Simulated scan of single mutants.
Amino acid sequence: MDQIKAISSFVRAVELGSLSAVAREQQSTQPTVSKTIAALEKELGVRLLERSTTSLTPTEQGRRFYERAIRVLEEFQQAVSDARGLTEKPAGLLRVNAPLGLGQLRLNALVLEFLELYPEIEVELILNDRFVDLVEDGVDVALRLAGALPPNVIARKIASSQRYLVAAPSYLQRHPEIRHPANLAAHRYIGFARPANGEVTELSGPGGIIRIAPQHRYQVNSSLAMRESFVLGAGLGLCPSWLVHDLIETGQLRRILPDWSGPGQEASLLYPSRRYQSLRATLFMQFMTERIPQLPGFEALSQRG
């Protein structure tokens, strides 16, 4: 029996909660994975998993073995890396997760540029606006914008994007002039949909910090939809510079109250805390750490005032 493979299958079974999911990840079959883990249980002389038709949970011995097994796998991966030394090549599959809007507007081009630099690396770019479980979904690196970070990950903040109020010229022509944040209450405000009711917007400007609670006539959980709504003159809103920088440059959108801005939106690279980082993942993070602050609408964290 290949003990490392068996231990790896067991660890992923605990993390995914499904033998079928492990089989799909390993491009194997559910019976094969089940036999592998059963052989491990037989060799150890203990039952590691409680199986039923609807669930898969570790036993008490299984939970204790899992905690040590993940460390064994980390040590094994580190030993493999040390043995390879400088002969390791940047090759293989890299699974990356990022927000949909940022991925389509900015990140996609960077990934293609990265692939040109490393022809033997393959990238699977998964774009969505929810926080994924990096371990459960088998993600090597994730790029996240602001918000609370999930547990069991290591985060590296790499850039910031200023947030300011914008609207289309067509909208501004049809509605009262805005001279102060207090005037926003009389306008159509477009915001990012959130689970909580309402949203408090914090603006910093000549008068210090002001907190307002604008009335959202329209909320949407897509930054791309917000961007389009602004262009169509549907309302105004607070958004990060990376999302609308090009539209400001072309005059399709205008900044409102340019002396006022919201808290910056920070970009962070995330990776699983319990997983050894491959050379391809390390190179990808180094590349993005250098290139993302150079994108329009972003700046290096050290440049913030």
Rank of each mutant, 00 (worst) to 15 (best):
M1D: 09
Q3R: 13
I4C: 08
I4Q: 12
I4Y: 08
A6I: 06
S8L: 07
R12M: 14
A13S: 15
E15G: 06
S20N: 12
A21G: 13
V22W: 03
A23E: 04
S28P: 06
S28Q: 08
V33G: 04
L40Y: 05
L56G: 00
L56N: 01
T57L: 12
T57Q: 10
T59S: 11
T59K: 05
G62S: 03
R64G: 05
F65M: 03
E67K: 13
R68G: 15
R68Y: 12
R68H: 14
A69I: 08
V72C: 04
E74N: 11
E75Q: 15
V80C: 12
S81V: 05
D82R: 15
G85L: 07
L86Y: 13
L86I: 12
L93I: 11
L93F: 10
A98Y: 05
P99H: 01
G101V: 02
L102N: 01
L107T: 00
N108M: 10
V111D: 02
V111K: 02
L115W: 02
E116K: 15
L117D: 12
P119C: 08
E120F: 11
I121W: 06
I121D: 05
I126M: 12
L127R: 01
R130L: 10
V132S: 12
D133K: 09
V135Q: 11
D140N: 13
V141W: 00
L143M: 11
V153K: 03
I154Y: 06
A155M: 06
I158K: 01
A159K: 00
S160H: 06
Q162R: 14
Y164P: 00
R174D: 13
P176I: 06
E177W: 08
R179A: 13
A182T: 12
N183V: 04
N183P: 03
A185I: 10
H187Q: 15
H187G: 01
R188H: 14
G191Q: 13
G191M: 09
N197Y: 12
T201Y: 10
E202A: 13
S204N: 14
I209V: 14
I210D: 04
R211K: 15
H216Y: 13
R217G: 14
L224C: 00
L224K: 01
E228M: 13
G233V: 11
W242Q: 01
W242C: 00
L243G: 01
V244P: 04
H245F: 08
H245M: 02
L247N: 06
L247T: 11
I248A: 03
T250H: 09
T250F: 07
R254V: 14
L257P: 08
D259Q: 15
W260I: 03
S261I: 04
Q265W: 02
S268D: 05
S273F: 03
Y276K: 09
S278T: 14
S278K: 05
L279S: 06
L283S: 08
F287W: 01
M288T: 04
E290Y: 09
I292R: 02
I292L: 03
I292G: 02
P293S: 05
P296M: 05
E299S: 14
A300R: 02
A300I: 00
Q303N: 12
G305D: 11
